Amino acid sequence: MLNIPVFSDIENAHQLIKKYAHYTPVFSSSGINSIVGGELYFKCENLQKVGAFKFRGACNAVFSLSEADAQKGVATHSSGNHAAALALAARMRGVAAHIVMPSNSPEIKKKAVAGYGASITFCEPTLQARESTLAKVIEETGATEVHPYNNFYVIAGQGTAAKELIEDSGDFEIIMAPVGGGGLLSGTAISTKHLLPTCKVIAAEPAGADDAYRSFYSKTLVPSVQPKTIADGLLTSLGERNFAIILDKVDAIVTVSEESIVAAMRLIWERMKIIIEPSSAVPLAAILEKKVDVQNKKVGTILSGGNLDLGKLPF
């Protein structure tokens, strides 16, 4: 049996991490509202520590460890935001973080992880190399693995973003999140369905990385094979725990084109004056493509992060 978090686990996570994580603002844009014909609210996790919602889950996982386990450190394989989030959370607790990163990870992400004081082991950029290298690191150090999304405490931590959004901005008819591994989406769905049982939870995914879409509608876990999208935070396959929650609590998953992701990202930069990464723009892209009907509806969206290479902007 998979150990699945419930809303009380999200409440516990919120109590635990509020000393460490930012309580991020909720913004709206009258310009964007007039374009889409609905009332949109954006939860700005691009302004979270390490620039992404991932800090919530990593922080909850690290601070939930027993003293004995914490002293042996934490470990994960990640090329991105989770690596930085885990490294910072470990530093805050005063324990070691061991990060396995593919050798082709973006330089900006390597620098961030090193800057938070983690010890990095580089490996070949294949899932097999990542997993076998991580297994070796754990064997040598005794560290606890903190998976980026298929982890009880990580899911509970990610669910705190939607909890804050609903507590701040009241009733929503729809709440949206992007979906990659499913950590943010599964946590969001648990919070939303508990606090607003009639609210629809809708996920958006790039058409070039549509494994969650195919998994959801076929009711079987379809792995992500050679995904191609600018939204590099959404390249991973769904985790088992995440998939079980998504099947139970998510109402729909829609896919969007690369052109729409770029257009949505640009719209948020231009109208709201905030920096978001492509993955964050995917839900708005679905609204712009009219894959989700927001006419006269109140819609909450989680802007998942703001980490990107400013030298490689798509517009």
Rank of each mutant, 00 (worst) to 15 (best):
G159W: 03
T160C: 02
T160Q: 10
A161K: 01
E167R: 10
D171H: 13
D171N: 07
F172M: 08
I174T: 11
I174S: 09
I174M: 11
M176E: 12
A177D: 03
A177G: 14
P178M: 06
P178A: 15
V179N: 04
V179P: 01
G180A: 05
G180W: 02
G180C: 11
G182L: 07
G182N: 08
A189F: 08
S191F: 10
T192V: 14
K193N: 08
K193W: 11
H194P: 01
H194L: 00
H194S: 14
H194I: 03
L196N: 10
P197R: 05
T198F: 06
T198I: 02
C199N: 12
I202D: 06
I202E: 09
I202N: 08
A203N: 03
A204K: 02
A204W: 05
P206C: 07
P206I: 08
G208C: 14
G208P: 03
A209Q: 13
A209M: 05
D210A: 15
D211M: 02
A212F: 03
Y213I: 11
R214Q: 15
S215V: 03
S215F: 09
F216W: 13
S218K: 13
S218Y: 10
K219L: 02
T220C: 11
L221F: 10
V222C: 11
P223R: 14
P223G: 07
P223N: 14
S224N: 09
V225L: 14
Q226P: 00
P227G: 14
T229L: 11
T229R: 04
T229S: 15
G233Y: 10
T236N: 13
S237V: 09
L238Q: 06
N242C: 15
N242F: 05
F243W: 01
A244P: 00
I246K: 09
I246N: 00
L247F: 00
K249D: 02
K249A: 11
V250G: 09
V250S: 03
D251A: 08
D251W: 04
D251R: 05
A252R: 11
A252C: 02
A252I: 02
I253W: 06
V254Y: 09
T255K: 12
T255E: 07
V256W: 03
V256L: 04
V256G: 10
V256I: 13
S257M: 08
S257K: 07
S257A: 12
E258Y: 04
E259L: 05
I261Y: 12
M265K: 13
M265P: 05
R266A: 13
L267H: 08
L267G: 08
W269K: 02
W269D: 07
E270K: 15
E270A: 13
E270T: 14
R271A: 15
K273Y: 09
I274H: 03
I276C: 04
I276A: 05
S279L: 07
S280L: 05
A281P: 05
P283C: 07
A285T: 02
A286G: 12
I287W: 03
I287S: 07
L288M: 15
E289F: 06
K290I: 03
K291E: 14
D293Y: 05
